[in-house]
């Protein structure tokens, strides 16, 4: 080993840079090449439209109601379903937390996540269809006179997002809920707080950071709904979501520049909502999440 090389090696090691650190390079390069680079490439490409000035894609998007309205359509689907899933997840997770054997329930609930949206869409087409078991049950009990239309419209997409989204928000919420020391709630109870007060003063503030993250992730998933919007919804009308237009621009009109612009707008809306949620989180909650035990 030469005398001149040694000090540099030592110095690098002081910074934590040695041969072990180099093991990160393949993974980092991979993500840079296939995630960051395409994203930046797409961003640049979106400013090089097929025709017109550098902003032509964006001006076109916001001038054409057929395009810009997809943001509203997507939000009308994504926001209610996200809120619904998270709001339902909290009481269920608080209840399931008390269960000694949670494994069976969590296993059942992880199935729709594993099956994915395409499979759930096909399942719901059969199950919710006019001759499916759901409509049969409703007719049998006399709750409706004629089959309810639940597929190829808004409700089909909505329900598919509940089937795949609720287990996701629930499992995420459950992991946050079980992270709260049960002794905290017991302490609240001994100090005279009733269940509702314990929830409001102890559990909810402790859950808030986790719920903000859950909301953000659930929203982003719902906002990029794609296969079920096509298969279960009405992709020409009420469920013409933003990912459909992006896909059509790229793979039906072969306008990659426009498609990239739409993808960037999609990312921008997600970023906006997440920023708002995280900002709200810091307003609601300040302080450490972990319990202060030694």
């Amino acid at each position: 080993m030469s005398a001149a090389r040694l000090p540099l090696r030592r110095r690098l090691r002081e910074y934590g840079l040695d041969s072990v650190t180099l093991l990160i390079i393949p993974a980092a390069l991979f993500v840079l090449a296939l995630f960051i680079y395409p994203f930046l490439y797409g961003l640049v490409l979106s400013f090089h439209p097929k025709a017109g000035g550098w902003l032509a894609n964006y001006t076109k998007f916001f001038a054409d109601p057929f395009l810009y309205d997809t943001i509203r359509i997507t939000l009308v689907i994504a926001v209610p379903v996200t809120v619904l899933n998270v709001v339902l997840s909290v009481p269920v997770a608080l209840r399931v937390r008390l269960l000694r054997n949670q494994r069976l329930l969590t296993t059942i609930l992880v199935i729709p996540i594993t099956l994915g949206t395409v499979m759930v869409a096909e399942g719901l087409l059969t199950y919710l269809g006019p001759r499916g078991w759901l409509n049969r049950t409703l007719l049998e009990f006399g709750l409706v006179d004629s089959p309810v239309r639940l597929v190829h419209n808004y409700w089909g997409v909505m329900l598919s997002l509940v089937i795949t989204g609720f287990p996701f928000t629930f499992l995420l919420t459950l992991s946050y809920v079980t992270g709260i020391d049960p002794a905290l709630e017991q302490a609240g109870a001994v100090l005279g707080a009733r269940p509702r007060e314990r929830f409001r003063r102890i559990l909810l503030p402790l859950l808030a950071p986790g719920l903000a993250i859950t909301l953000a992730l659930a929203f982003v998933q719902a906002f990029t709904v794609f296969p079920s919007a096509i298969l279960l919804g009405a992709p020409a009308g009420p469920t013409r979501v933003i990912s459909i237009v992006a896909y059509q621009a790229a793979f039906e009109q072969y306008d990659y520049s426009m498609a990239s612009a739409i993808a960037m707008l999609m990312a921008a809306v997600q970023l906006l909502i997440i920023t708002l949620l995280l900002a709200a989180r810091t307003l609601v909650f300040r302080g450490p999440v972990s319990t202060g035990k030694g």
């Binding site: 990160i24 993974a27 980092a28 993500v31 840079l32 296939l34 995630f35 960051i36 680079y37 395409p38 994203f39 490439y41 797409g42 961003l43 490409l45 992730l217 982003v220 998933q221 906002f223 990029t224 794609f226 990912s243 992006a246 896909y247 790229a250 990659y256 498609a259 990239s260 739409i262 993808a263 999609m266 990312a267 997600q270």
Partner: peptide, 23 residues
């Protein structure tokens, strides 16, 4: 670097999939 590894898990596939497919 940690943030770099988190991003592909947080950004939904359809969002980054379109520019990635283009590349």
């Amino acid at each position: 670097v940690m943030f770099l590894f988190l991003l592909p898990l947080l950004v939904p596939p359809i969002t980054y999939g379109i520019p990635m497919a283009t590349v």
